[in-house]
């Protein structure tokens, strides 16, 4: 079974077994290692990618179910010259953490800070980030950065 999808703007074909978790195809076949298979239970958010614009836990998503879809990993969330607003804000607020949970948070924040997706409040941002677990630092500066993007301050 050949599975076709658009990955970070590129049309790709995969011959992986259809129930293979998307995360394994991304990491093992495409060497896109930003998404991490940490809990494989949908609790930690480290494997988060965008599928058709929606944050999706790639550890629980069979590759066959994204046939024809548009997948964006953290590696695809770039722009040619300057970082996208979320990434610039995270840097400006000194919120960048280690690479384990953080790529997933960047993916969800990219979605969350789109107009109309989330109220510009700390409570709403924290609710929106439910399912992202950081075990080493904290969340407050990440929330500061998201709030700054939503309020157009970054």
């Amino acid at each position: 079974m050949t599975i076709r999808l658009t990955l970070n703007g590129e049309e790709r074909e995969f011959a992986a077994p259809p129930m293979t978790p998307l995360i394994d195809v991304l990491r093992d076949d495409c060497h896109l290692t930003g998404a991490k298979p940490v809990c494989r239970e949908g609790f930690c958010g480290a494997c988060m990618v965008l599928v058709d614009g929606i944050p999706t836990v790639s550890c629980l998503t069979p590759i066959a179910l994204v046939e024809g879809g548009k997948v964006e990993t953290v590696e695809g969330l770039t722009s040619a010259d300057t970082p996208p607003p979320v990434q610039a804000a995270l840097e400006a607020h000194d919120a960048v953490q280690c690479g384990m949970c953080f790529p997933g948070m960047v993916v969800s924040l990219t979605h969350l800070t789109q107009p109309g997706e989330c109220d510009a409040s700390r409570a709403a941002i924290k609710a929106g980030l439910t399912g992202h677990v950081c075990r080493c630092t904290g969340y407050e500066r990440i929330v500061d950065a998201a709030l700054a993007v939503m309020e157009g301050r970054q």
């Binding site: 949908g42 929106g128 439910t130």
Partner: peptide, 9 residues
């Protein structure tokens, strides 16, 4: 229930 990504799936 669960978290936003799970609720979408």
């Amino acid at each position: 229930s669960a978290n936003p990504a799970i609720r979408h799936a």
